[in-house]
Amino acid sequence: MVGSAMRQTAYTMLASPIGPLLLGGTDDGLACIGFPSGKGAVTPGADWHRNDAAFAEARAQLTAYFDGRLTRFDLALAPRGTPFQLTVWQALTEIPPGETISYGELARRIGRPSASRAVGAANGANPLPIVVPCHRVIGASGALTGFTGGVETKRFLLALEGGPAGPAPAQLGLL
Rank of each mutant, 00 (worst) to 15 (best):
L172C: 05
F84P: 13
Q61P: 01
I101L: 09
S141F: 02
G162V: 01
P167T: 14
P83M: 01
G139C: 07
T153F: 02
E99G: 00
P44R: 05
G163N: 11
L158E: 01
R80L: 02
R108T: 06
L70C: 05
G34R: 03
S141Q: 03
A46H: 11
R69P: 04
Y11R: 03
A56D: 15
A170V: 14
G68R: 06
A140M: 10
L62V: 07
G45C: 01
W89V: 00
G149C: 07
T145L: 10
G29N: 02
L22W: 03
A56K: 15
A143Q: 14
E94Q: 11
P169R: 07
G142P: 13
M13P: 00
A76G: 12
F84K: 05
A46Q: 15
G3Q: 10
R50Q: 14
P97V: 01
L158V: 05
P129Y: 12
L21W: 08
D28C: 07
M13T: 12
P20F: 08
P36E: 13
L30N: 05
G149D: 04
A15T: 11
G163L: 06
A60T: 14
T71E: 15
L22V: 08
E105V: 11
F84Q: 11
P129M: 10
R112P: 04
E161Y: 00
A41D: 09
E99Y: 04
D74A: 14
C134D: 10
P36L: 09
G149M: 10
T153C: 06
D52Q: 04
D67R: 11
V119C: 09
P129W: 14
S116G: 00
G150F: 11
F147H: 13
A170R: 15
D47C: 15
P36A: 10
V42I: 09
P20C: 07
G29M: 01
R136G: 06
F84C: 08
P17K: 13
D47Q: 15
L157R: 06
R155Y: 06
L86C: 10
I130R: 00
V119K: 05
L175W: 12
L144N: 12
R80N: 06
N123S: 08
G40L: 05
L75I: 10
D28Y: 07
I95K: 02
G19E: 08
Y11T: 02
T12S: 10
L30Q: 05
P113V: 01
G149I: 06
G25L: 11
R112G: 04
G162E: 05
G25P: 13
D74R: 11
V151L: 09
L174E: 12
A121Q: 15
F35H: 12
A64P: 09
R7P: 02
E94D: 06
A5N: 14
T26L: 05
M13W: 14
F66P: 06
G3E: 06
R155T: 11
L172K: 06
Y11F: 12
A64Y: 14
L77T: 01
T93M: 15
D28R: 14
G3I: 05
P97D: 02
G120V: 09
G162Y: 01
G34M: 03
T12C: 07
W89R: 00
N123M: 03
G149Q: 07
H49Q: 15
P167L: 15
W89S: 00
E161A: 01
